[in-house]
Amino acid sequence: MLEGKFDEASLLKKVIDAMKDSVKLCNFNCTENGISVQAIDDSRVLLISLLIEAGSFEDYRCDRNIVLGLEMESLNKIIKNGNASDMLTLVAEDSPDALNLIFEDKRRDRIAEYSLKLMDIDQDFLKIEDMKFDAVVNMPSAEFAKICRDMKTLSESLQIIITKDSVKFNSEGDFGSGSVVIKSFTDLEKTEESVRITLEKPINLTFGAKYLNDIIKSTPLASQVTIKLCDKQPALFEYQLPSGYLRFYLAPKFED
């Protein structure tokens, strides 16, 4: 049996909101360590890897491994009915045909209970080896989101160029072009405002702006985003959860 209680529904609300526009059907794999998901978007360009460790829950138990096949849009409809500050408990039997979601208001005696039908989802599972990256950028997630939104107004592609201590986001469109350069910066008082660039080799990669604009829907999850890049390899965009992560692997565009 699975029983996982979040102190606040807001964490799962944000996670589902970040994923629902990229993937429609997901298997949520529940083990004693927590809940993990691997899913690929319909155009097969973006891979999402979610890990909500047991430590992200107030209480968590899962006696046997359980797979919950969930339709993200339906899950989102139910999740939106709960308040962000409600306690949220996920409950499923050992061979479940439904996931139960219980929202409890902390101040009043109000309990809302929902049941979501499960689906049998046949999904490929890809093995993600430990990847080597030539550049790692840690930056404020809100700053990254604004750059992705701004650059998408010009072009469907966004170029990321990293040299010693700066990252250049470049967009070449039909009616004009634009770029934003950010440099390494340490804010000792507000560390979440800092930009850190770790570089082994310079990077020049191009990505679909549409996918980056789906990835930035994770912004409310974490104040910083970590971007890991290597030539001709998928880039990794990572948002840390209190215990776990939401990762996006995005295939770069390149000429053969």
Binding site: I40, V45, F125, L126, K127, I128, E129, Y249
Partner: peptide
């Protein structure tokens, strides 16, 4: 610029 699919980069589990 061509857009490769993500599974080209990873092995099936």
């Amino acid at each position: 610029m061509p857009q490769p699919i993500i599974s080209q980069f990873f092995l099936p589990h």
